[in-house]
Amino acid sequence: MMPRITMDEVLRVAHLARLEFDDTEIEVFTYHLGEILDYIGKLNELDTTDVPPTSHVLPVCNVIKTDKAWDSYAREVVLENAPSAEEGHFKVPKVID
């Protein structure tokens, strides 16, 4: 069995997922994630060495569309749901590279 997920790992994953938690939440999350991952560890009972993975149950491939352009949406419509917009742009806190 894999070692239980640690609080540090939970913090690393939270950053990757752009989430933040206070100290109590982190404890609860670490505990619950540990429990769930232990349960998931059950999968290791199975030898899957020669089993191909399934990412799709469909017997479908090669779905394409023709290269024809249609009208785009009006800019007012596109920006209607924006939390912050200005001069036709979506506005976000300064991005520093």
Binding site: D67, K68, A69, W70, S72, R75, V78, G88
Partner: peptide
């Protein structure tokens, strides 16, 4: 050099006004 975008039907073009060649 396609006419439309990779996964939607918006036109590919340079120099259009911001956010005028977009869709959901």
């Amino acid at each position: 050099a396609t006419e439309s975008k990779l996964f939607c039907r918006c036109k590919v073009g340079f120099g259009a006004e911001a956010n005028t060649q977009t869709c959901p």
